[in-house]
């Protein structure tokens, strides 16, 4: 029989939540599930003058996409090089181990110093956008930096792990079949590494969703789901706050599961050797 526990947990939590707020003499500030639900079913309604939930989600999604893409385009090549070359690995690993524990929050001041409050539209020289409500105006470089930081390390580590898990037998087979280094890299190392790379990507995107809250704490921010969580809290609008948490949880899981599914096929092929 299939394990039904995971499916039961969510209704149970909802029940617990409902009991908590309606219980005799309950003085909790928590809104009821119904109140939160009523926020969620009006995704186009303006919430406390920050725009609609859809707008907040879109802004955050685009930010994460930018930060994560940057993390991927930088993390994978670094991981590949570190995995393939002992020299590069020795050279970079200390740096990476030092950088890795620095949390996104710890980096807020640094990113302010580095990027001030410059946005992507300014960076791209599109100053004519300044007074419009445009997505590019919401993309602060410091945010992209923090999101990049959050996502890049799992990607690097996953890629290294993947390249290093290439089987010696396959490398030798490629060699006796006359393949040169670059060909081996492209057609043996990378395919062998794919399952671990995807695992790194999955952890990376999860991390990005965790640090979006921190990223959207940057001064001058007035949009995004992370910002909305903080702002609604300040205004004691816990219904909105909880609705945002639900959204982050759902989208985050959606991203992880998507990457997991992509990685699944490569994993199946790699592990089904006899």
């Amino acid at each position: 029989m299939k394990n039904r526990l995971p499916g039961l947990i969510i209704p149970l939590l909802l029940l617990l939540w409902w009991i908590l707020i309606t219980g005799e003499g309950s003085d909790t500030l928590l809104p009821s599930p119904a109140e939160v639900f009523s926020i969620l079913v009006h995704p186009f309604r303006d919430q406390i003058s920050t725009g609609s939930l859809i707008w907040s989600m879109t802004v955050s999604l685009v930010r994460i996409t930018l930060g994560f893409s940057l993390a991927v385009t930088i993390g994978i090549p670094i991981g590949l090089m570190m995995g393939a070359s002992t020299h590069v690995r020795k050279f970079l690993s200390l740096m990476i181990e030092m950088a890795r524990p620095l949390s996104a929050i710890a980096l807020l001041p640094l990113s302010i110093i580095l990027f001030k409050s410059e946005t992507l539209s300014q960076f791209l020289g599109m100053s004519y956008l300044r007074y419009q409500k445009h997505l590019l105006n919401e993309m602060q470089l410091g945010m992209i930096f923090i999101l990049f930081w959050g996502g890049v390390f799992p990607i690097i580590l996953g890629t290294i792990q993947g390249v290093r898990s290439v089987r010696k037998l396959h490398l030798e087979a490629a060699k006796v079949l006359g393949a040169r280094k670059t060909f081996v890299f492209r057609h043996v190392m990378i395919p062998s590494a794919l399952p671990d790379i995807f695992h790194g990507l999955k952890l990376g995107i999860g991390r990005c969703w965790m640090v979006i809250i921190a990223a959207e704490m940057l001064p001058g921010t007035n949009s995004g789901i992370g910002y909305l969580i903080r702002y609604s809290y300040q205004l004691s609008r816990y219904d909105i706050m909880l609705a945002c948490l639900v959204i982050v949880a759902i989208i985050g899981a959606f991203f992880s599961k998507g990457l997991e599914a992509l990685g699944e096929k490569s994993l199946v092929l790699r592990s089904r050797e006899r």
Binding site: H170, A173, A174, A179, H187, V188, E273
Partner: peptide, 22 residues
Amino acid sequence: FQQGALFPWMSIYANVEFPLSA
């Protein structure tokens, strides 16, 4: 090789083509 050492992520066709593409 004793254990074949085919590349599990490639089809049989791609495996056999490997030394030629290489």
